[in-house]
Amino acid sequence: MIEFRDVSASYDGELAVLDRVSFTIPNGDFVAFVGTNGAGKSTTMRLINGLLKPTAGDVLIDGVSTANLRTSELAAKVGFLFQNPDRQICCNTVREELMFGFKAQGRECADAEGRVDAMIERFGFDPDAEPFLLNRGTRQLLALASIIVLETPVIVLDEPTTGLDFRECSKVMEIIAGLNVRGTTVIMVCHDMEVTADYAKRVIAMTEGHVVDDGPTFEVLRNPNTLQRAHLLPSQIVDISMRLGDVAPAIASSSIARANSLDQMSTAIYEFISSHAGTGASPALGSDEGLGA
């Protein structure tokens, strides 16, 4: 479990980027941090794995303060995937890269070799390939694999889908979702509301170093007040429901408004549009102003 207790943080003691932030992430959760650049999301991630120490408050990992642990000790508990894989990759072959974490942590053993082999097979890597000659998406996958192979109970991902195309993005996120299903706590910074809506169970919205909302993904992402305060754009499905609500007040009492998840909302919108298509019941839906088409 990860616990932030009134945590404040700054860089070089000059600029407070986090101000008395508190939250708890239980084991097995899948949390996405959303907000604009400078909101304090990446700083929060750096606090989790001890790359940054809080100026006030305490960050606890399984009840132990990160202030009492070295970053290298925390590496065995928290895996960290950086936005830029090129900062992480430093070995001459894919196989060496996957073994690097075990070597750094002094955990080289036959079991490690076996896990590396399994990871190579699972991701379809060429073990002798030079990592820097791989394409961007594959380098990101390699960076992710080199974290996953260590089997840390917590994985922190700083914008894992940046620079990836849709297929690569889906592949990365499916792997991460699979880890979460098997019990790994996933904490992710993400600017892509679609990815957040599709995969995260919980969203923490931040702005200017404060948490403005914390709750189930669906509740946070359809809260207009949260979206406004955190300067976020809603995901497409929420956006459509909002626009439908604007042009057809009847929506407010329909199954769309009563939906409890994004899946339910998508289904309700589909049914609503299907039932009204061609009936002329809601002329505004077909206009440019209505759906912004």
Binding site: R70, T71, A75, A76, V78, F80, R87, S146
Partner: peptide, 18 residues
């Protein structure tokens, strides 16, 4: 800045620079 970022990334993987 790049070097600091690279060292930070390796620290996060368990390398002890201290």
């Amino acid at each position: 800045n790049d070097m600091a970022g690279i060292m930070e990334a390796q620290t996060a993987r368990g390398v002890e620079f201290d």
